[in-house]
Design a protein around this nucleic acid. Structure first.
Lengths: 132, 132
DNA sequence: TCTTGCCTTGACGTCCGCGTCAAGGCTTAC
DNA sequence: GTAAGCCTTGACGCGGACGTCAAGGCAAGA
């Protein structure tokens, strides 16, 4: 299969595949005319990359998963190096979610304070005879 | 006050101030020698910008707050346009936190599954006669 | 043969908030 | 006079994952 077909089957673009190849992540064989040639295994690797990317993994973080599959393991996360990435990602996510939650609380507090300070607010909440 | 002093007092850099000026966010008067000149009000504007930036607001999103202060209001969020930004940011944060939480759960599930599938895991959890 | 549609490499553009360097001017202290 | 330390503008760099355009080659159908 050529690059266009692989891209289409993985729901991505040829540019993306060439980029992955330039990063050494998804090298391609070449046909006699210089065209890149891929097989079903490459599709599987690509799908692994895309899944992790959708999760917010950096491209480099997908490398252990790809190498794991290429080494013949049934899943990309069948190798210790992949589990390390999983755990690190979990820690990063926990930190990030915590920070965002903190910021959210502070922004909400600021909004509440600012609304309370506003004279004659446009949206009375429950009193003042509001209808619904 | 010149640019270096303002930057120092706000805990930022001269490059940052020039960047804000280039964006029209924090224009400066000029002295006879061409040097930028700032006053205490500018410091207040700058601190408002920095606070919001620390919260993850885009520079453009800080503009209503700055204009509000410049219009003479006591706080940057004393104006409706600022409250609109607050509310939009809250919605964005909620969406983002929700997405990240979802991803976190999926990654955790993958990790659990992969660990369970691993033969002779390195860290037995509670059984198998582990010490503590 | 010509057109269409795929493929190739190379290289610059995007977004954002600056960092960093270059070349030079002003001011002050010694 | 001159060195230090501030200031000026201009312009390129960075990180990440590509988008997009240019110029050209290869393959297949009418």
């Amino acid at each position: 299969m050529r690059i266009g077909e692989l891209a289409a089957r993985a729901g991505t673009t040829t540019r993306t595949l060439r980029y992955y190849e330039s990063r050494g992540l998804l090298p391609a064989r070449r046909g006699g005319n210089g065209y890149r040639t891929y097989d079903e295994d490459d599709l599987k690797l690509l799908r692994q990359i895309r899944t992790l990317q959708d999760f917010g993994f950096d491209l480099e973080e997908t490398r252990p998963f790809v190498e794991c599959l290429r080494a013949g393991h049934p899943e990309g996360d069948s190798c210790p190096a992949s589990l390390v990435v999983y755990r690190r990602k979990l820690a990063e996510l926990d930190t990030l979610i915590e920070q965002l939650t903190s910021v959210r609380a502070q922004v909400a507090a600021q909004l509440t304070r600012a609304e309370a300070a506003a004279p004659g607010g446009p949206e009375p909440k429950c009193e003042l005879g509001g209808h619904g």
